[in-house]
Structures are given as structure tokens and as C-alpha cells.
Amino acid sequence: MTDSSRHTAVATEEESPADDLRPPGNPSPLGARFDGKGTNFSIFSRSATAVELILFDGPEPHDSFRRIELIEREGPVWHVYVPGVGPGQLYGYRVDGPYRPLEGHRFNRHKLLLDPYTRTIGRPATWHPALYGYDIASGADDTSFSELDSAPYAPLGCVGDDVFDWHEEAEGVNAFEQSRPRIPWEETIIYETHVRGLTMRHPDVPERLRGTYLGACSGPVIEHLKRLGVTTVQFQPVHAKHSERRLVEHGLVNYWGYNPLSYFAPEPTYAADPVDAVREFKTMVRTFHAVGIEVVLDVVYNHTAEGNRLGPTLSFRGIDNASYYKEQPNGKRFLLDFTGTGNTLDAGNPFVLQLIMDSLRYWVIEMHVDGFRFDLASALARELYA
């Protein structure tokens, strides 16, 4: 990749060790995984010709960064191990390859991309013409090519730390399963709600916790749920989301959350401290379990926030559009839209299916949720005429 991929003229690029001296890392697991001494970065892209990892010293456009070329590749998975990099490290990818929209390929090295496996959003996206892979500013169609650098505006991933005290080791026996309420179906009473809407105007919840994960599990809410006889709380989507441009231009946001950007990271705006969203979500689940209430999530694996071919290039589209999305068989420039949102994830691709399954496992094993409600589940297995 060329120097045109630098994220701003005022940002400074720090020197990095030569790529051939860097540990190769492992292709599995996908994502960024800290091992106590460094972090392994791994990303899937079948049709890419080059992948760069960008490590940022801070979230501001002028903050310095390091650029690391991923020279190790096993099949369609690119990977590298970076010693000394740990929790709190902000990062993104630049992925190069053919820009041939008519064939379904929309690689653009000028776009900084969010890791689909990131577990924490380190910085949300800011709407700007640079987020588009094509030249939207000039009014050109989606077959044009944008050379605007999106790094100052793109969402950033953040290397996470899975350490959390669940208080689930008792007398040497792992009490992971024992800690779950496991309410029989015939006794289940589900209370569907929205993390923000549940407490945003609740007068008895501390003001700083209103509309947050910690507010949802606060004393007044739990007392209310127990009084109703609720056994299970079902939250509308908590996966990190991205509000559509038309909403933002009208001073609005996508409130309901059915516009996912990441399938691993909890929505940071639902946390009292956005950078601490993972810990706060886990605290919420632990608190509910302690009083015998299950936690179920509404999940949206049928589409992403990137929309149709005219949408932004934030993650999946720039990493490997033809692999992640279902395309029109007679015109790969266009995406199949079984969801009414502009795109449909291609769960028939083994790596997309793995993404979905890895996400579900993560929310059960690491975040301790008890179940899921699948939005438009039929779209996951739908064929053109099915």
C-alpha cells in the first residue's frame, strides 16, 4: 500500500520493527486476542491482495499511529502477533484488492475498517463523505472510486481484556452452569425492553445511570421486575450499532438498534462510561442472575449497518464485500435485500457462518447471557427463490 493511506497530513507515523522480524502470530482465533505479553490479530478476507493493521495512539485525527503489514496468510486468513500491545489499544485495518463493483469487489485502501471481531468500540464513526468507497461528494455513482482517507471519521476497534470477577468458583467446582437461573419454559415470564428506554426517565434511578446497563439492573428496576413476577428480561439489540446518515442529518439516531455494526461489541452509548461497556454489561448480567432473572438478547445477524451498494464502507464491505453479502446473481454490483435494509449477510459462506456462531458463543460463554431472539431468522438460510 502507498503513503496515500496515511490518515491525516498532521498525524505522525511511528517507526515499527521490520515486518520480517515480527512474530507471525496465528490464524485462529479471529479478532484481536491479548495473551498477557502481546496481541494476536487475525482477519478473514478471501479476495484481498494486501492487509495492513493500523495501531492508533489515541482517538483524535492528529494522534500518531503505527502501520503493520500482515505478510502471514493461511488460506483466506491474514494474521500477525504484536508484542507489547495490550488492552486499550485502538486499531483498524486497511484492506487492498480489486475495486470492481460490477464484479462485487469494493476494496479501497483509503478506507479504515472496523474489525468484525472487535469486542470493544474504541471510537464511534462520524458521518463524512470519506466513509464512502465511491465519490459521493461529487455526485458520482457507486462505480466511481474515492481517494478520501476515512481514518479520522471511521469507527475504531479496541483490544479488550476479558478479566471479570463472576464469583462463580465455589469449593473448587466451576459453578458457571449453576449460576444460571434456568427457568423452565412453562414458568417463564418474559419482559421485553430497551436498555435506554427502561430507565431514561426513571426518577428513582441515579441520573448518571439512566439509560445504561447499570441503570437496567439498579435496585428500583429489579424491585419492579420481581414484583411483576418477571423471570426473564429480553433486551432489544445491544450489539454496537450505527445510525443511518439520513437520521443524523435530521438530528436523530437509530434508537431501536436494529442496525448492527459489530456482533461482539456491546453498544457503548448504553454504558455510563462508554470505554467500559463490556464490564458494565457483565455487571448487569451478574446482577440479574444473582436475583434469579435470566437475560435474553434480541440479535440481528441478517444484515449490517452498511446498507445497500450506496452505503458507507465501514467494515464488511471493505474487507470482502463479495464474501460477506448476498449478491444479485445477474448483477453483482447489487446486493440481495431479503431484509428491507439494503443488504443480507451471506450465512452460506463458511466464514460468515463462523462469525455468527462465534458471536453467539461469545455472548453465552464470556458475557453469560441465557438465550437469544433472532430478528428475521429466515433470512439467514434463504436462497433466491426460497
Rank of each mutant, 00 (worst) to 15 (best):
4 S>M: 11
5 S>M: 15
13 E>I: 08
15 E>K: 11
32 A>D: 04
42 S>V: 06
61 P>D: 05
64 S>L: 03
65 F>I: 01
65 F>W: 11
70 L>H: 01
73 R>H: 11
83 P>M: 03
88 G>Q: 05
90 L>T: 02
93 Y>N: 02
93 Y>T: 00
100 R>V: 12
104 G>Q: 04
107 F>G: 05
109 R>G: 14
115 D>H: 04
122 G>C: 07
124 P>A: 06
127 W>F: 03
139 G>V: 02
140 A>W: 01
142 D>T: 14
143 T>A: 08
149 D>Q: 14
153 Y>V: 02
164 F>N: 02
170 A>Y: 13
173 V>E: 12
173 V>T: 12
176 F>C: 04
176 F>D: 15
176 F>K: 11
187 E>D: 15
187 E>V: 00
193 T>C: 10
203 P>K: 06
204 D>E: 15
204 D>F: 15
205 V>L: 07
205 V>T: 08
206 P>E: 13
224 H>F: 15
226 K>I: 05
227 R>M: 06
232 T>C: 09
233 V>P: 09
235 F>N: 00
236 Q>E: 08
241 K>P: 00
244 E>I: 12
245 R>K: 13
254 N>I: 03
256 W>C: 12
258 Y>R: 07
259 N>W: 02
262 S>E: 01
263 Y>W: 15
265 A>C: 01
277 A>P: 05
287 T>C: 09
289 H>V: 03
289 H>G: 05
290 A>F: 03
290 A>R: 15
294 E>Y: 10
302 N>Y: 01
303 H>F: 07
307 G>W: 10
308 N>T: 11
317 R>P: 00
322 A>H: 14
330 N>I: 09
339 T>I: 03
343 N>C: 02
349 N>Y: 11
350 P>A: 08
354 Q>D: 14
357 M>Q: 11
359 S>P: 02
361 R>F: 04
365 I>Q: 13
367 M>R: 06
369 V>C: 09
375 D>A: 05
378 S>W: 14
